[in-house]
């Protein structure tokens, strides 16, 4: 079954209640042809399991990695991705858009 926006936040709550470290990533800003709209969520647990998406699969890997730091120290982070990024080949958006992603821990 596909994870819907509805399922994602409900699942985040379940994971947290099950005693896992959990972070929520949210697309807070988009420019150009961003693959997922503002407000899209990705939830990540301490083992790197994730649900949902903030792009069409382009940057999820990096967000999941950054989320581990957020889960560890509890400090929210704002990440930015775009083709202008020097790491574009590794974690850029092939569609030419730019996105800003806010990652926070559930406490």
């Amino acid at each position: 079954m596909l994870a819907t926006e509805q399922d994602i936040l409900a699942e985040a709550e379940n994971w947290k209640r099950a005693g896992k470290g959990v972070a929520i990533a949210t697309v807070v800003e988009t420019w150009g042809s961003a693959p997922r709209p503002t407000g899209s969520h990705l939830v990540i647990d301490e083992e790197g399991l994730f649900l949902g998406s903030v792009s069409g699969g382009c940057v999820e890997g990096d967000v999941v990695t950054e989320a581990q730091d957020v889960i560890a120290d509890g400090k929210p982070r704002t990440l930015e991705y775009g083709v202008a990024d020097e790491t574009a080949w590794r974690v850029g958006l092939s569609c030419g858009g730019r996105i800003r992603v806010y990652v926070e821990r559930i406490d």
């Binding site: 936040l9 709550e13 821990r105 406490d107």
Partner: peptide, 9 residues
Amino acid sequence: MKLDILKAL
């Protein structure tokens, strides 16, 4: 995000 807020949402 506080778990309480997520729960309320």
